[in-house]
Design a protein around this nucleic acid. Structure first.
Lengths: 221, 221
DNA sequence: AATGATTTTTAGAGTACCCTAAATATTTAT
DNA sequence: ATAAATATTTAGGGTACTCTAAAAATCATT
């Protein structure tokens, strides 16, 4: 069985390669795990015998199918636990990341099978991120950023790009959550902020940054 | 924060001292943690600066109040998770120990507060062991072993002494669980086994070993 | 193609665990 | 009270991770 550290390396590599196409480089992994580049090189050399990834000096790493499988199962576990924490225990979406980060390393296949059933086989976590099924398949969704909507277009919030605490708390502050209805009132050219109508009732001005990080499912008019 | 290993040492010391009065000795700790006596000595020396226990060479260790507090909280977490696994996820009582052993190390006070509330502030775990409250207080109960009951005395099963898997599965086999009614029909002198009436319907012959490990709350006749 | 900036690796060392074998202390039995 | 048995510690070493500083390789710019 893989150690917690190993699991964290594999997950970091998965997330980096998923975002930037191509191999994950040493510095990126180090940044992701808040460790030094030297430690990463050391770890990659020691781990590379275990067939989770291909590593070539100075070229970075990419996962094998075994590594992808492992990363996917970790993401599955992380997101299922997040659903548990929010839906069952009553945590809010900005409080669950660190706890799920610990829970995802608990090793028991039966536990995940039963947890998944108990939660009703959820397809998305509290941030709208898809939960891979037991076979590792993600359910994708037609979604666009709020920023990309044209004037008068409507939709509902289905996810957030980065689920960092400050952004989630910013959204809490405006009472924006998954399922919140949005209609574009206008784009402000000056700073690319947007005026939107929230839940058919409240008019809000949202920054470009916020609008680029909110995922919307469009309502066909 | 204490490492998982440290936590396991403290818990082992607590359980040993609880059972055998007096200091926990090196070999007992080693046996409890499936490690070598030399490793235990090594660890005790390194850990003894942290004020969890008093250690004197060749004399064994006993916990300080800080150590007792830590052990108690770990037991609280372990038993709450066991309740979750059985009551909510549908595990049986013989399947939950190892999973709870991992879950108990997850570090979040808020998580335990919310989990406890979600479970309805249970006082006992699935094996009938008391769950200490947030202040570390155990709810004790009037209980005796089945073995100690006289002929014709009645009671209900409220716990098991050791919750090792084989014993729990043995009980499953006879459909004996917490809440099962027991009435003593006779003591067999030859091997100290007992003839009992289970749930007012089934007559069973139980071994001395089993009867000594079953806790009963007597019904006043 | 050479220089400078950046990235990555190597070298050397530290901590937190674990081990076996040997030495020493304590307990038990005579 | 001594010998034998048992319990504990010490000595020496191993693995999995971490680090900083220095060396080497790659990339970017002219």
């Amino acid at each position: 069985m893989a150690s917690e550290t190993e699991e964290n390396y594999i997950k970091a590599i998965f997330k980096i390669t998923e975002k930037n196409q191509g191999a994950a480089n040493t510095n990126a992994i180090a940044a992701h795990l808040s460790t030094s580049a030297a430690s990463v090189t050391d770890m990659l050399k020691r781990l590379s015998s275990k067939d989770y990834f291909h590593y070539e000096k100075y070229k970075g790493v990419y996962l094998t199918s075994k590594g992808i499988e492992m990363a996917t199962q970790l993401i599955r576990k992380h997101r299922l636990w997040e659903v548990f924490l929010v839906d069952k225990l009553g945590f809010s979406w900005d409080q669950v990341h660190d706890i799920a980060e610990q829970l995802e390393h608990v090793d028991s296949d039966e536990l995940i099978i039963k947890l998944d059933a108990y939660l009703g086989h959820p397809k998305y976590d509290p941030h709208g991120d898809p939960i891979p099924n037991a076979e590792g398949k993600f359910t994708l969704r037609n979604q666009v950023t709020l920023q990309s909507l044209e004037k008068n277009e409507k939709g509902t919030v289905v996810g957030v790009r980065e689920n960092d605490t400050p952004f989630l708390q910013y959204l809490n502050h405006f009472n924006i959550k998954l399922g919140t209805k949005m209609q574009v009132l206008s784009h402000i050219d000056y700073d690319h902020s947007m005026k939107v109508l929230v839940d058919d009732t409240v008019e809000l001005l949202l920054s470009h940054k916020a609008c680029s990080n909110l995922f919307i499912k469009k309502t066909t008019l």
